[in-house]
Simulated scan of single mutants.
Amino acid sequence: MRWLTLAAIAALAVFLAGQRVVLAQQPTEIVSVLRPGPLPVTDPFDPAWDEAPAVDVPLGPQAMTIPSLLKLSVPTVRVRSLNNGDQIALLLEWADDTRDDLTVADQQFRDAAAIQFPVGQELPNICMGAAGQLVNIWHWKADWQRDIDQGFQELVNQYPNFFKDFYPGGVTGTPPFTYPTDFDRPEARQFQVGWAVGNPFSVPQRPSPVEDLKAIGFGSLTHKDRQEVGGRGVWRDGRWRVIFTRKLAAPDSESADLRRDQVPVAFAVWNGANQEVGARKQLSGFYTLRIQGQERILGLPRNLVGWLAAGFIGVLAVVVVTLRFLRRRAAAGI
């Protein structure tokens, strides 16, 4: 699958050259600034984000598989990152003239963004990994964000005259009924099959607008059993600002362990107004995310080395003081 990675990079380089973007002039490192204390994980406009250097990451259209993106709609995404030694947060920002956060009708498409990390040590295929190259993908969805901010969006949000007049049993309330509150009884769930079986796209109570996923190549994207990634997105003045956040430590074997000083990372953005969905997206190449506070010395975390060094110095000081005391006693003939 290495040829797919090389072909994707070559295609992206050719496209960017056509757009007069010089790859050599682009920074290849994103620094996650170490910031003690709580991180600004709920407000994309918190002034604390100004402490993190911004990197404009160029994007190119996905053209390796169908459905491909024929016309680029989002040329760059701006990335910042903060961490406090235990938790990390990334802020993605990009221009979008329209806020597309309703996907009730079949002709509607959401705005979205994603971050991809390799799970193992090997640099995977940029296109969602490959067999033996598991990747962890954090996927923020604008419609999930609206569900959280405004309540679950259903048919009446798109078609206000839609009317549900009768269900045979288990449903509470009166017509036209309210979803999901009037369907909370187990016997009522038989009419909401997706919700009943736990389909993440059908569950109305969303704890996070970010879906935590895994993949080993095209067509393998899978919802993870453990959902540990949080976030929040806000559209303002023609721009999206979206936060992704998680503990640095991997919660399971299918997640990226970010307790390293350098981690490969890639990005993707979808523009709903351009009917982008699935593989129809723009994406970046891999960048290096340098996480301050996770530097290693002789293979050990820097903070652990610091504690070991401090402990060694402390023990050495006790030994020196003890030896001096014993020598003085010996010299005094005690």
Rank of each mutant, 00 (worst) to 15 (best):
T174P: 00
G173Q: 07
F163M: 07
G173K: 05
Y167P: 14
Q150H: 14
D165G: 01
R146I: 04
Q145K: 07
D149S: 07
V171S: 02
E154M: 02
Y167D: 10
Q158P: 00
D165N: 06
F162K: 01
N157A: 15
F166G: 00
Q158E: 14
T172H: 01
D143A: 13
I137N: 04
D165T: 05
I137L: 15
A142D: 08
P168Q: 06
P160I: 07
P160Y: 10
D165V: 03
P168Y: 07
Q153R: 13
Y159H: 09
V171I: 05
G169E: 14
K164N: 13
D149N: 06
F166P: 00
F163Y: 15
H139F: 14
V156H: 05
I137A: 01
K164W: 14
W140A: 08
D143I: 01
A142L: 07
P168F: 11
G170A: 06
Y167T: 05
G169R: 14
F163V: 07
P160D: 10
V156I: 08
P175W: 04
F162M: 08
D149C: 01
D165I: 04
Y167K: 01
D165H: 07
L155S: 09
W140M: 07
L155I: 11
R146S: 10
P160H: 10
F166A: 01
N161D: 13
V156D: 12
L155F: 04
W138M: 15
N157D: 15
P160C: 09
K164C: 05
P175Q: 04
Q150L: 12
T178V: 06
F166E: 02
P160A: 10
P168S: 12
K141I: 09
I137T: 13
V156P: 00
Q145M: 09
N157M: 06
I137Y: 08
I137Q: 09
P176A: 04
T178Q: 02
F166N: 03
Q153C: 13
D147W: 13
K141D: 14
N161G: 00
D147C: 04
Y167L: 06
P160R: 10
H139W: 15
W144C: 02
G151H: 03
K164Q: 12
P176R: 01
P176N: 03
Q150F: 11
D149A: 11
Y159E: 11
W144N: 12
R146F: 05
F152H: 15
W144M: 12
P175R: 02
P176D: 03
I148S: 08
Y159V: 12
D147A: 06
D147M: 02
Q153S: 15
W140G: 05
F162I: 01
Q158K: 12
N157P: 00
D143N: 15
G170S: 08
H139Q: 05
F163I: 02
L155N: 04
L155V: 11
D149E: 12
V171M: 03
G173T: 06
Q145W: 10
Q153V: 09
F163A: 10
F162P: 00
K141N: 14
A142N: 08
Y159F: 15
K164D: 15
D149L: 06
F166Q: 06
D149R: 06
E154C: 09
F177T: 00
Y167M: 05
Y167C: 08
T172V: 09
D143R: 01
W144K: 11
D165Q: 03
P160V: 08
